[in-house]
């Protein structure tokens, strides 16, 4: 089982959430990569069984600029077999709270096997952290009993 967490953060909020996801996933996944979006090796992406994407939201619900190449990659590749999940932080005072999560969600639903989304207001609080294990559970493939 090979998995990857890809994130981008500007204030550290999404980074902190990504850390939580990493800590939780690393308990059950041995082959787990954890990369900033600027450091993706696109040739390797199709080798993963599942990918979790962490993004903040810019302005009134926009994708951060550095996330665009990744977004485009999914659109072009359409890796329907790939399990994906998207998490992010945002500010509910803006229209389209965590709008970048929604943009990824709608696209990933069409292009991949989207499993779960998670939105957090600014820096994760204890009630947000509690959702991380559920998030990771949903992302992982159903166990196959023989």
């Amino acid at each position: 089982m090979k998995a990857c967490i890809i994130y981008s953060s500007v204030t550290g909020n999404t980074y902190q959430l990504a850390q939580e996801v990493y800590d939780t996933l690393s308990a059950s996944i041995e082959d787990l990569d954890y990369v900033h979006v600027d450091e993706i090796d696109y040739d390797q992406l199709l080798n993963y069984d599942f990918i979790a994407i962490g993004t903040y939201t810019w302005g009134s619900g926009d994708l951060p600029m550095e996330m665009e190449p990744l977004f485009d990659w999914f659109e072009e590749q359409s890796p329907k077999h790939l399990r994906t999940a998207v998490f992010g932080t945002g500010d509910s005072f803006y229209p389209n709270f965590c709008g970048a999560v929604d943009l990824f969600r709608d696209m990933l639903y069409v292009k991949t096997t989207l499993t779960v989304t998670l939105k957090v207001e600014l820096m994760p609080q204890s009630h947000d952290i509690k959702k991380v294990p559920t998030f990771c559970d949903r992302l992982m493939p159903e166990p196959v009993y023989s």
Binding site: D106, L114, T115, V116, T117, L118, K119, T134, R138
Partner: peptide
């Protein structure tokens, strides 16, 4: 198209 948890994934 806007999708939601009714499309078979979870929104936490």
């Amino acid at each position: 198209t806007k999708v939601s948890s009714s499309n078979g994934f979870d929104e936490l």
